[in-house]
Simulated assay, not measured.
Amino acid sequence: MEYKEFSKKLETINGISLTPFDSNTKEIDWTGVEDNIQYLINKGLKVIVPCGNTSEFYSLSIEEAKEEIKRVVEIVNGRALVVAGIGYSLPMAIELGTYAQEVGADAVMIHQPIHPYITDSGAVSYYKKIINSLDIPSVVYWKDEKLSDDVLKEIAPLEKFVAVKYSINDLPRFAKIVREIPSEHHITWICGTAEKWAPFYFHAGAKGFTSGLVNLYPEKSFEMLHALRNGDEKTTWKVWEETLPFENLRAKYHNGNNVVVIKEAMNLLGLNAGVTREPVDPLDADDKEQVMHLLEKWGLLQSQQA
């Protein structure tokens, strides 16, 4: 595989797919998974990430995560890249990554370890062992502000390390690490905090961004992507203003609303999002009303007063 060429394919919207759960049993609704992946494909998504945080990866058993990766690969059937989320302990991450590789995923996204204790050198070892254990490329999900970006410098020379999903909203810090890692390593920098932060990250060196909004309003996400690529400031900030209230609602309760806001919006639009699993509860009445009003404002949902 030409890893440096692969990295350029991630310079786009990285759509984090939803995992719909049955409202009664909380089991995965596999028909809903297929419906939602087909929707993303039909809307033009070229990078789909199952088992991301917006997929509620943290609530899935290892067997469920494997099954989701396998089914998404089968549904996509080569029409887009599948970047499978993997993580937890080192052996578990390698097990998930190896499985993803075996069933045909194009790459993996390595979640940052959730252990209560972590050191920079330990993180370097963690990432190196996972990346070196696989043949397919790896994306590193960079989220813990307590870790030094020197970790990324240490692993940057690894050929199979192709991208960083950077999710620490410290723009000077991001701009600095982008400029400190030589371009010869062919790392694609991805804004990991969606449309709200994408314009700022792009100005600092990002070439792609993650999105949960694509699960219900991909047209708006693509409008931002094209504006950013074309240097169209007017459209960029128009889209930013239009999507900001939605992203702010997702960020409520220290990002506790991240998934459930998307699911509420999808369900209102007749898409198959299902419910969330614990530890995330349904939205309260006020937040539900805000979601409905946003969809009405966007013209996606007929006003209840009409």
Rank of each mutant, 00 (worst) to 15 (best):
P157G: 09
P157W: 08
L158R: 08
L158W: 07
E159V: 12
K160S: 15
K160D: 08
F161V: 14
V162N: 11
V162K: 07
A163S: 15
V164T: 12
V164Y: 10
K165E: 09
K165D: 08
K165N: 07
Y166W: 11
Y166N: 11
S167N: 10
I168S: 04
N169E: 08
D170F: 14
D170P: 10
L171W: 05
P172A: 14
P172F: 13
R173D: 06
F174Y: 14
F174G: 05
F174S: 05
K176V: 06
K176F: 05
K176T: 11
I177M: 09
I177L: 08
R179K: 15
R179G: 14
R179V: 08
E180P: 10
I181L: 11
I181S: 07
E184D: 11
E184S: 14
H185R: 12
H185K: 13
H186K: 10
H186C: 11
H186M: 05
T188D: 06
W189T: 14
I190C: 09
T193Q: 13
T193W: 13
E195L: 12
K196C: 06
W197K: 08
A198S: 13
A198Y: 07
P199L: 13
P199A: 13
Y201F: 15
F202N: 04
H203E: 12
A204L: 09
A204V: 05
G205V: 04
A206G: 04
A206E: 04
K207F: 11
K207M: 12
G208L: 02
G208V: 03
G208C: 04
G208Y: 00
F209W: 04
G212V: 12
G212Q: 05
G212T: 06
G212L: 10
V214A: 14
V214F: 09
N215H: 02
N215P: 07
N215A: 05
N215W: 06
N215I: 06
L216H: 11
Y217D: 09
P218K: 03
P218N: 06
E219A: 11
S221E: 02
S221N: 01
F222D: 01
E223P: 00
M224N: 01
L225Q: 03
L225T: 02
L225N: 00
L225Y: 01
H226I: 00
H226F: 06
A227R: 01
L228S: 01
R229C: 01
N230L: 08
G231E: 03
D232C: 02
E233D: 05
E233G: 00
E233T: 13
K234V: 08
T235S: 02
T236L: 02
W237L: 03
K238W: 00
V239A: 04
W240E: 01
E241F: 02
E241N: 05
E241R: 07
E241A: 13
E242Q: 10
E242W: 02
T243G: 06
L244N: 02
L244H: 04
P245N: 02
E247D: 13
E247G: 02
N248D: 11
L249P: 04
L249H: 01
R250G: 03
R250F: 05
A251K: 00
A251T: 00
Y253N: 15
Y253F: 13
N255Q: 07
